[in-house]
Amino acid sequence: SNGDASPTLTLAEHDHLAQIICKSHLETCQYLREELQEMSWQRFLQEEVEKYQNKPQEAMWQLCAVKITDAVQYVVEFAKRIDGFMDLCQNDQIVLLKAGSLEVIFVRMCRVFDSQNNTVYFDGKFASPDVFKSLGCDDLISSVFDFAQSMCSLQLTEEEFALFSAFVLLSADRSWLREKLQVEKLQRKTESALQHVLQKNRRDDGVLEKLRCKASALRALCGLHSEKLAAFRTVYPDAVRTLFPPLYKELFAA
């Protein structure tokens, strides 16, 4: 690297960076693809779907908040293992995780998404959008499923998923960053390694551009999540205060 915000990496450096990020991703991705393929036939029966649909709204929100909180902890570990992340100042580590952890979770969700059946792995089995009906936010759920469907159509490899997740997490345009240039440098290196891997995998030239669009779509999804949480909190302030995991509140409801 020449040390500025536009790093020029050698092929070997690109490969090395891609390998490290892919290793970090596989160590912290919660589910391996092989495990998921074995579980793909386990779909919720109609009576199980109805059980979720009949849950009180606050109980279903709590369940989803718990699942998201579990996933956040794995994203934090992923971040810690990205070369250079722990060298950033603590303020910036927190800013990036606060803004990007849910975005990475939505990217990771595409690995546990069955595009043929339009189902996602949730609470032990594959769930269709109607499982989430009692949350009372059909538009958010359908946007999340549409996003997963469209990400799946790109058929990313694990290495591409890993680099795209790191690229999203290292977004240098988040508000409140103190050392923006350092983050920018890391993000550009990651983007460059992603581009290198896409070329190596002989992917269509447009894939990187499509991934940039997906990064904007992720921001919109997270914005919608915040809106829905704020609306839910207005109606059920005590449920958020007493039932939601402290880490979820720290990240999304502070």
Binding site: E27, D70, Y74, E77, M86, L97
Partner: peptide
Amino acid sequence: KEKHKILHQLLQNSTSPVDL
């Protein structure tokens, strides 16, 4: 730091849920 106590702890911890 106080506002993001848990996140701060997770970043400092050498053992994590992933390792356990």
